[in-house]
Amino acid sequence: MTIPKPSGIGKLFVAACLIEGLTWTGLLIGMFLKYTLEVTDLGVWLFGRLHGVAFMFYVVVTVLAALRLRWPWWATLIAVLAAVPPLVTIPLEIWFKRRGMLGQAPAVR
């Protein structure tokens, strides 16, 4: 079985997943440095802001992708909820890509 290549909005969704995951990682490292090692709060200051923007970008792109690619309601719900726990958007994107959910929308009948 061949996996279809992501469409334009599918590629944007992939990018949003990666950005959201990377900013989560930066925020987690920043929290470790601030609260565990008590070295600096710069990571939380910087990545907290970046992750806030990335989170909002991810949610908007997810809703647009869901509408344009005609995802079922359950896929849209899972995709939005995946942004809450750390680093879940990346495996979700891989799963959606393998299911062919990032390619062209199915034809309307």
Rank of each mutant, 00 (worst) to 15 (best):
C17L: 02
W73F: 13
V44G: 02
Q104W: 06
E20F: 03
V60Q: 10
G52F: 05
I94S: 11
R68P: 10
T23S: 05
F57Q: 12
M31P: 15
A105V: 08
G43N: 04
I29H: 13
L18I: 12
V59R: 05
T23W: 03
I29Y: 13
G103M: 06
G8W: 06
A16K: 03
G103V: 03
K97A: 13
L22M: 10
A66F: 04
R109C: 13
E38W: 07
W24R: 11
A105W: 03
L42F: 12
W95R: 10
P86W: 02
G21K: 11
T25I: 14
K97N: 09
L77W: 13
R68I: 07
L67E: 14
P86E: 06
L12R: 07
M1Y: 01
G30C: 03
P86D: 06
V88R: 15
L64T: 12
V84N: 06
A83S: 04
L22A: 10
V59T: 04
F47V: 01
R99L: 10
F55R: 04
F47L: 00
S7E: 10
I19R: 11
H51A: 02
A54I: 12
L28E: 11
L12A: 09
A79R: 09
G8L: 12
P72A: 15
T25E: 15
V53I: 03
V14Y: 12
L28R: 13
Y58E: 08
L81P: 02
F57R: 11
F55H: 09
I3L: 09
Y58I: 12
V60P: 06
A82H: 08
M1H: 05
T76M: 15
L92N: 02
T23L: 04
L46K: 02
A105E: 06
S7T: 08
P85M: 14
R49A: 00
R70L: 02
R68F: 05
R70C: 04
F47Q: 02
A16E: 07
L22S: 08
L46P: 04
G100K: 01
F47I: 03
Y35G: 13
G48Q: 06
R109V: 15
V53P: 04
K34D: 14
P91V: 14
R98Q: 12
L64K: 12
V14Q: 12
T25H: 15
G43M: 08
L50T: 00
T76D: 15
P91C: 10
V61N: 00
G10D: 00
G26F: 04
W45E: 13
L102C: 01
V61C: 01
V53R: 08
I3T: 09
E38L: 13
R49K: 05
W71A: 00
R70D: 01
V63I: 12
G8R: 07
E93M: 13
F55V: 06
R109M: 14
P4I: 00
W74D: 11
V61W: 00
V80E: 03
P72T: 14
L12Y: 07
A66W: 02
R68Y: 04
M31R: 10
A82N: 09
T89D: 04
M1G: 04
A75G: 13
V60L: 12
R98G: 08
A105K: 04
G21F: 10
S7L: 11
F47T: 00
R99S: 07
A54E: 01
L37D: 06
P6R: 10
M31E: 14
